[in-house]
């Protein structure tokens, strides 16, 4: 299921476990990982023609923008960046006490025949990505959809695998991966925090 951190992040809440976790990626680690992913995207697609980056709200969006900056730097092409909210595509309708807020979606170009690189901060169960695939396909018929994530923490519940990974992090189910970004949290860094026991 969706972790609380994932849910909080997706709802734009600034509630993240405060410090006390184990730092697994520093700001420099993140910078290098994103640079490598940008190179991998270019290599894999032999350039950036027909490419569109789509960030999954909330934290996938700034990561997608950072990748776009690097693609521009390396290839001299401004790749369009969209943002996708998956709330209406989640698979837990009717299972929640309160509906999560629906965020904005903005896909700046027609996705038909484009190569979409879907970008998220943490890949966990794969349910968010499943929802995002459904959402994207409502906008048209992309030629291909690829997946880039900053952290792959395992525990997949669906047959989904990433094409580009910043860091593979083995975690336990009782831990959360907290991604902090300058744009949303004031600083860069990834931590593992053990989940508080909730009443």
């Amino acid at each position: 299921m969706y972790s609380d951190v994932e849910a909080a992040a997706r709802n734009g809440s600034d509630h993240l476990p405060s410090s006390g976790g184990k730092l697994i990626m520093s700001a420099d680690d993140m910078r290098r990982a994103l640079t490598r992913i940008a190179h991998e995207i270019i290599e894999h697609n032999r350039g950036v023609r027909q490419l569109v980056l789509v960030g999954m709200r909330t934290r996938g969006v700034p990561i997608a923008r950072r990748l776009a900056e690097r693609l521009d730097e390396f290839e001299g092409v401004q790749v369009p960046v969209g943002e996708l909210d998956i709330t209406l595509y989640r698979d837990d309708i009717g299972l929640r006490a309160v509906q999560p807020m629906v965020g904005s979606t903005a896909i700046p170009v027609d996705v038909s025949d484009k190569i979409i690189v879907l970008v998220d901060d943490v890949l966990f169960t794969g349910r968010s990505v499943r929802a995002a695939l459904d959402a994207l396909i409502d906008y048209g018929r992309p030629r291909a959809i690829q997946l880039a994530v900053l952290v792959d923490r395992g525990h997949r519940e669906l047959p989904i695998r990433p094409d580009y990974v910043g860091k593979n992090v083995p975690t336990s189910q009782t831990e959360d991966v907290a991604v902090r970004l300058r744009e949303t949290d004031g600083q860069d860094g990834v931590e593992i925090v053990s989940r508080e026991v909730r009443a």
């Binding site: 709330t87 209406l88 595509y89 965020g103 904005s104 409502d138």
Partner: peptide
Amino acid sequence: RQVLDTADAMKEILARPVKKAPGLRGR
């Protein structure tokens, strides 16, 4: 405000070529 903000997101669906999302599937 929550209803109005949610309506903003819904308006984006109305601007799509296929005006449909599965938010209330099965309800």
